[in-house]
């Protein structure tokens, strides 16, 4: 059985946010509801100041703390779907405990103040129980897996583009956007990545490209001390996430 994983090479990432945009287009997310985001870290000062770009999808953890805290099993890890963590919008009661428990801050409660004006929910008011109904919508919708546009009062998150990945031919282990045979099934963030910093494939297949990259290039998982064991690995320099420092208290050392 497949175990879907993602590898992100930080030495290649340019912070262009194409992945973030592609995700928003693919999944019809609201501004600020960034299932996929590229975090920007600023650390240190001249002459050793650093700037880091850190693409951040849902980590689809092997031990997802969000799943354990959900009182209704609305959030669940589906081993039959490659270990992707889904939110069943028919069961979510909007308690937001999963958002508290996720160490990676990758869950969204879009029933909140708009990030930008005009409020897209007012421009395109929700129909058929949707929170908002833009004129273009991805036709794929599966509320049991949190795919599509959510109803009000539920939590949403990255699905590794399961609506695409699940349609791949059986036995696919490498989702290479340059391979015409599988490119339609590649997650939107991976397919759009211009510097080809992202890879997607089967972590359970010994010969998969993701496994080779993790082994050869010393892939690491973020916040490993939490024990959540992400299915997303990072390569290259810059995977060390600096501790929070308020802007007015920069590192003076």
């Amino acid at each position: 059985m497949a175990k879907w994983g993602m590898v992100i090479d930080l030495d290649k990432c340019t912070g262009c946010q194409a992945c973030t945009t592609a995700c928003a287009m693919e999944n019809n997310t609201l501004p600020g509801e960034s299932w996929q985001d590229v975090l920007f870290y600023h650390e240190g000062e001249y002459p050793s100041g650093q700037m880091k770009w850190l693409p951040r999808p849902c980590m689809q953890c092997e031990k997802p703390s969000c799943v354990y805290v959900c009182p209704t099993r609305a959030t669940y890890k589906d081993e039959n779907a490659g270990g992707i963590v889904f939110v069943d919008w028919n069961k979510c009661i909007g308690c937001k405990y999963c958002m508290i428990a996720c160490p990676y801050g990758v869950r969204f409660y879009a029933d909140e103040k708009p990030l930008i004006e005009p409020d897209m929910r007012e421009v395109y008011p929700g129909q058929n129980k949707q929170l908002w109904s833009p004129p273009y919508q991805n036709p794929d919708e599966d509320w049991r897996r949190g795919i599509g546009i959510q109803p009000p009062g539920v939590v949403s998150k990255c699905t590794f583009c399961y609506h695409k990945v699940s349609k791949a031919p059986a036995g696919t282990v490498d989702f290479d956007e340059d391979n015409p045979a599988v490119k339609e099934y590649v997650p939107a963030c991976v397919r759009t990545c211009a510097p080809k910093a992202r890879y997607f494939g089967d972590l359970d297949a010994p010969d998969s490209q993701v496994n080779q990259l993790i082994g050869d290039k010393h892939g690491v998982r973020l916040k490993d001390h939490t024990g959540n064991k992400p299915q997303v690995y990072y390569l290259g320099a810059g995977a060390g996430v600096p501790a929070f420092t308020p802007a007015d208290k920069g590192d003076k050392s």
């Binding site: 209704t72 099993r73 609305a74 979510c92 009661i93 909007g94 029933d111």
Partner: peptide, 14 residues
């Protein structure tokens, strides 16, 4: 809560 009445069945049934 986002969906309070759903809580009444979703918590005990799951």
């Amino acid at each position: 809560l986002g969906n309070v009445f759903r809580m009444l069945w979703a918590i005990p049934l799951n």
